[in-house]
C-alpha cells in the first residue's frame, strides 16, 4: 500500500506490432544467459572451437611456412589437415553438445511456464499462440545454430582468410552450405522434439527423460530391424543416423562412415517429415493453451 501519492503514467497504446515473438525469444535467451549450467555448456563448445582455431592456424600458417621448424611435422600429421571432413567432424562433435544444451534449455520451456501459470498471463496480453511458439523455437534455434553452424562458419571464414586462394574460397563456400544444411538438419528436429516433449509432460526432468528414452528407442528399433532383416538401410529410421547421412552427403565426404545405399534425399525427407509431425503436434498443443475450446 503506497504511503505517499504514488501512481503510474497513462499509456495510450503502442504501435500494432507484428513480430511479438521476438520479445519471447529475447526473454528466453535472457533467462538462459544467467544460468551457470548453460554458460558451462557454451564454454565447452567454445573450447572445441578454440582447438579448431589452433588447428587452422597450424595448417594455414605454420605448416605453410618453409622457415618454420615445425612445418614438416605438421604437414605429415593428418590431424592438422584441413578438408571438408574437418568441418563435418567439428559439427558432428558439436551436435552432442548442442543436443545436451537444447535439452537443458528447452525441456522446461513450456512445462515450467504451464506449472507457473504463465500462459494465462501471457495470453491475456496481445500475444498469440504462434508468437509464443515461434519465440520459444527461435530461442532454441539461435542456441543450436550458434553452437554448430555459427562456430563452423567462423572457422570457415578464418580458413578462407588465412589461405587466400580461389580454390579455398570455393571450397569454403561449398562447406558453408554444408555446415548450414547439416546444422539445420540436426537443430530443427531436436528443437521441435524437445519442445514437444516439454509441452506434453508436466516437468522439466520428465521431458528430458522422455526425449532421451525416445532417441534410444528410435535408434534401437532401427538397429533391430536392420539386423533382423539383414538390410542396413533400415538404419535410416534412426533420426541421428538420418541426420548424419544428410551431413555426410552435404560435405561430400571421401570416406562416408554411414553405410546406407539409399539416396540421401530419403534421409532428408525422413528428418523433414519427423520435424513436421513434431511441429503439427506442437501447434495443436500450444494453440490449446490460448484457445481452450
Amino acid at each position: 500500500m503506497p504511503v505517499y501519492e504514488q501512481t503510474y503514467r497513462s499509456f495510450e497504446g503502442g504501435p500494432a506490432l507484428r513480430w511479438r515473438w521476438r520479445f519471447v525469444a529475447a526473454q528466453e535467451l535472457r533467462v538462459l544467459a544467467v544460468s551457470r549450467v548453460f554458460k558451462f555448456l557454451v564454454f565447452l563448445g567454445g573450447l572445441h572451437y578454440l582447438f579448431r582455431v589452433m588447428q587452422i592456424v597450424a595448417f594455414d600458417i605454420v605448416a605453410q611456412d618453409p622457415n618454420n621448424p615445425l612445418a614438416p611435422l605438421l604437414q605429415r600429421a593428418d590431424i592438422f589437415y584441413i578438408s571438408g571432413q574437418t568441418f563435418y567432424d567439428f559439427i558432428s562433435y558439436q551436435l552432442t553438445l548442442m543436443f545436451v544444451t537444447l535439452l537443458y534449455a528447452g525441456s522446461g520451456m513450456i512445462c515450467n511456464d504451464v506449472r507457473n501459470n504463465l500462459p494465462e498471463v501471457y495470453f491475456s496480453k496481445p500475444l498469440r499462440w504462434y508468437d509464443y511458439l515461434t519465440g520459444k523455437l527461435l530461442a532454441l534455434f539461435v542456441v543450436g545454430f550458434f553452437l554448430t553452424a555459427g562456430m563452423a562458419l567462423l572457422l570457415l571464414l578464418q580458413h578462407a582468410l588465412m589461405s587466400p586462394s580461389w580454390e579455398v574460397a570455393i571450397d569454403c563456400l561449398r562447406w558453408s552450405i554444408g555446415a548450414l544444411g547439416y546444422s539445420a538438419a540436426a537443430v530443427l528436429p531436436s528443437a521441435l522434439f524437445i519442445l514437444l516433449c516439454s509441452c506434453l509432460v508436466n516437468g522439466q526432468n520428465y521431458a528430458a527423460i522422455t526425449v532421451i528414452m525416445t532417441i534410444i528407442a528410435n535408434t534401437a528399433l532401427a538397429a533391430m530391424f536392420a539386423e533382423t532383416l539383414r538390410y542396413q538401410n533400415w538404419y535410416v529410421f534412426s533420426v541421428p543416423v538420418a541426420v548424419g547421412h544428410v551431413g555426410e552427403k552435404l560435405f561430400q565426404l571421401a570416406r562416408p562412415q554411414i553405410a546406407l545405399t539409399i539416396p540421401w534425399t530419403y534421409s532428408l525427407l525422413y528428418v523433414a517429415g519427423f520435424s513436421l509431425v513434431c511441429l503439427v503436434f506442437l501447434v495443436i498443443r500450444v494453440r490449446k493453451m490460448e484457445v481452450a475450446s
Binding site: 497504446g13 526473454q27 533467462v31 544467467v34 544460468s35 507457473n116 501459470n117 498471463v121 495470453f123 496481445p126
Partner: peptide
C-alpha cells in the same frame, strides 16, 4: 480487447528465475 484490459488470474503466477 486484450490490448485494452488487464487480467489478474486466480492462480499463483511466477517466473521463478527472473
Amino acid at each position: 480487447v486484450r490490448r485494452r484490459m488487464g487480467y489478474m488470474p486466480e492462480r499463483e503466477v511466477s517466473s521463478p528465475r527472473v
